[in-house]
């Protein structure tokens, strides 16, 4: 997950930008408290978004804490809630397995950074997995399916996307049973599907050059690692369809004070990110540093 899922912060009123920032800082704080300093480095927009989705309709209180990225300034952060704890644990598990995937995908030298990062995150992962065994099991199982599909050079974009979507949908299992959980499951399933496809489109040129598996290379002709206009249209169509299914599900539950942020993400943010990805303009803003500077600027 690389921060694809985000509200359009600059179009939101200041109050909402601050609210988003409080969750971002609150999740960072919770990650640090529960899993140690190393875990704070996995923080990104996608995980913040997961925390918002899992949150209660009302915002809990705030605390002022020091930001390790900017120690001179105190930040307002959401106090730790069960939703933030859940999001933090699930984020650690997802990030750890993603690093393992990186280790498997690369050779000894290029995989070194993944191995090192996974090593740093291992303790946090073990703790998170002990707290959320079902989610860890689901992640493990779906990533195995994904690896098998990669091995077979699966030409369907739906099947590998389904494995990742099921994985993310499993995050809803910890929520209390009832309509909210069903709505969350549907949103997370299609969000997972959308993220997988966005990531595949974003990495297409790189994967084509290195000869790595990417479902788009087998589903479309992808000459020279680039989608032609018709192929882009077809991919945008199926990604947009997932977004519309997210929107239909979203309208069935009241997410309270998070509504402006969620609405901005589902109705505008996802489309603009998909556009940037398909136009090949997203990679440039992908580095962690860029994102952090950006959030700092946007929420000032």
């Amino acid at each position: 997950m690389y921060g694809y899922v985000r509200p359009v912060l600059k179009e939101l009123p200041q109050e909402e930008q601050d609210r988003f920032r409080r969750v971002y800082c609150g999740l960072c704080h919770t990650l640090g408290k529960r899993h140690g300093l190393a875990a704070r480095f996995i923080l990104n927009y996608d995980f913040t978004f997961l925390a918002i989705l899992l949150s209660e309709p009302e915002e809990s209180g705030c605390l002022h804490c020091f930001c390790p990225a900017n120690p001179c300034r105190k930040r307002e952060a959401l106090i730790t809630t069960p939703a933030l704890e859940l999001a933090a644990d699930e984020s650690v598990i997802l990030a750890y397995w993603q690093l393992q995937d990186g280790v498997a995908d690369h050779g000894f030298w290029t995989g070194l950074k993944y191995r090192l990062a996974a090593r740093l995150l291992r303790r946090a992962y073990r703790r998170a997995a002990a707290w959320r065994p079902e989610f860890d099991q689901a992640a493990r199982c779906q990533l195995e399916t994904l690896a098998e599909l990669e091995e077979q050079r699966c030409a369907s974009i739906d099947r590998p996307a389904d494995a990742f979507a099921q994985l993310l949908a499993a995050a809803a299992k910890e929520a209390e049973e009832g309509p909210r959980r069903r709505v969350l499951r549907e949103i997370l399933y299609h969000l997972g599907r959308w993220i997988y496809l966005a990531d595949a489109a974003d990495d297409l040129a790189k994967d084509a050059a290195r000869g790595n598996y990417n479902p788009l290379r087998y589903r479309f002709s992808c000459e020279g690692g680039v989608l032609d206009e018709e192929e882009k249209r077809q991919l945008a169509l199926t990604m947009d369809h997932s977004v519309h299914l997210i929107e239909s599900a979203y309208e069935l539950w009241n997410f309270g004070c998070w509504d402006p942020i969620l609405r901005s993400t589902f109705y505008i943010g996802l489309f603009s990110v998909a556009k940037a990805v398909l136009e090949g303009e997203f990679q440039a803003s992908k580095s962690c540093k860029d994102r952090k500077t950006k959030i700092g600027e946007e929420s000032k």
Binding site: R233, Y267, I268, K275, L278
Partner: peptide
């Protein structure tokens, strides 16, 4: 029945 029918990833004006 859905509103906002013009929203979408606009990579092709034909859509």
């Amino acid at each position: 029945y859905q509103q906002g029918g013009t929203f979408g990833t606009d990579c092709d004006s034909g859509l």
